[in-house]
C-alpha cells in the first residue's frame, strides 16, 4: 500500500480518561483503507474504548479522531448518524436485540435505513446469514443462541448495510476451532471482496496475525509497538515479544495493581475497600 493515500481513520495525540484513570495518553493510530488493522493489548487497556471513540460514542479529552476526512467529535448528531450508517460494529457482547429473532435482528438495520421491499430484505438477510453459516438458525430467538452463534449473528447484522468499515470487538472469543477458522477467513474475504476496511480488536495473537496487514500493540495508554506481523516478530521490544509469544514473565503484568499479597491477607476485616 502506498502511504500517501489518506488513511480512512487517523487518530492523533488522543487523550482520554475515565474519572481519574487515564486510558489514552497521547495515541497516534492510522487505519489504512482496504486493510485489516489489528489492535491488540492486555485486557483493560482500552481497546473497546478506542472503538467507541472511533464510532463517536465517546469524546476524547484532547486530540483528534478523523474518519473519512470527518472530525468525529465535532460532528453534529445527524452527520454522526450518517457516518455510522457506513460503519458496522461488532460488539464484544453481540448486543443483539432480545425482542427480535435472528432474522429480524439482521433485518433491523435494513428496515431502519432503507425502503427496500420485504422480499429483497429477505434475500439480503439470507445472504448475510449464509455467509456466517447460520441461515438455518433464522427462526431462533436470541435466547436460543450460544455465545458464539450470537456473535456470528451480530456479524451478519454488522455487514447488512454493506458498510465501508467494520469494527470487530473480540470476534473470535467463544468460537470453536472450526467456526474460528471460518470467521478468520470470512473477515479477510469480506474485507477483500467488498473493498472494506476492517479493524479487529483481539487477544488471539495467532489468528489475528494471520490475517492482519497492520498491528498496533497498546499498553498503559500508549502505542508500544506498530508494524506488519512480520515486522513485529523481530520487534526490538521485550514487551511486544512477551505479548505476542504469550510468555507469563516479562514487563507485562498479569495482576491489576495491588498491595503485597501476604500483607493483604493479614489486613483482615477491611473487606473489599481495604486498598484505595
Amino acid at each position: 500500500m502506498s502511504p500517501d493515500i489518506e488513511p480512512l481513520v487517523s487518530i492523533r495525540d488522543l487523550h482520554f480518561a475515565r474519572g481519574r484513570k487515564t486510558i489514552f495518553d497521547g495515541v497516534d493510530i492510522d487505519i489504512r483503507r482496504g486493510q485489516v488493522t489489528a489492535i491488540m493489548g492486555p485486557s483493560g487497556t482500552g481497546k473497546t474504548t478506542l472503538l467507541r471513540l472511533i464510532g463517536g460514542q465517546l469524546r476524547p479529552d484532547k486530540g483528534s479522531v478523523r474518519v473519512d476526512g470527518l472530525e468525529v467529535p465535532k460532528l453534529r448528531t445527524r452527520e454522526l448518524y450518517r457516518l455510522r450508517q457506513r460503519m458496522g460494529m461488532l460488539f464484544q457482547s453481540g448486543a443483539l436485540l432480545t425482542d427480535l429473532n435472528v432474522f429480524d435482528n439482521v433485518a433491523f438495520p435494513l428496515r431502519e435505513h432503507t425502503d427496500l421491499p420485504e422480499s429483497m430484505i429477505r434475500d439480503l438477510v439470507l445472504m448475510k446469514l449464509e455467509a456466517v453459516g447460520l441461515r438455518g438458525a433464522r427462526g431462533l430467538t436470541t435466547a436460543e443462541l450460544s455465545g458464539g452463534m450470537a456473535r456470528r449473528v451480530a456479524l451478519a447484522r454488522a455487514i447488512a448495510l454493506d458498510p465501508m468499515m467494520i469494527l470487530y470487538d473480540e470476534p473470535f472469543t467463544g468460537q470453536d476451532p472450526i467456526s474460528m477458522g471460518v470467521l478468520v477467513k470470512l473477515i479477510r474475504e469480506l474485507n477483500d471482496a467488498l473493498g472494506l476496511t476492517s479493524v479487529i480488536v483481539s487477544h488471539d495473537v495467532q489468528e489475528t496475525s494471520a490475517i492482519a496487514d497492520d498491528i498496533y500493540l497498546l499498553s498503559d495508554g500508549k502505542v508500544v509497538a506498530h508494524g506488519s506481523p512480520g515486522e513485529l516478530e523481530h520487534y526490538d521490544s521485550e514487551w511486544a515479544r512477551q505479548f505476542l509469544k504469550a510468555l507469563p514473565d516479562g514487563p507485562v503484568p498479569f495482576h491489576y495493581p495491588a498491595p503485597d499479597f501476604a500483607e493483604d491477607l493479614l489486613a483482615g476485616s477491611e473487606g473489599g475497600r481495604a486498598w484505595q
Binding site: R84, L97, F108
Partner: peptide, 13 residues
C-alpha cells in the same frame, strides 16, 4: 446488555 448502545452504533436513535 448494550442493546441501546448497539442501536446507536447502527445509527438508530
Amino acid at each position: 446488555t448494550e442493546q441501546l448502545s448497539g442501536m446507536e452504533m447502527m445509527a438508530v436513535d
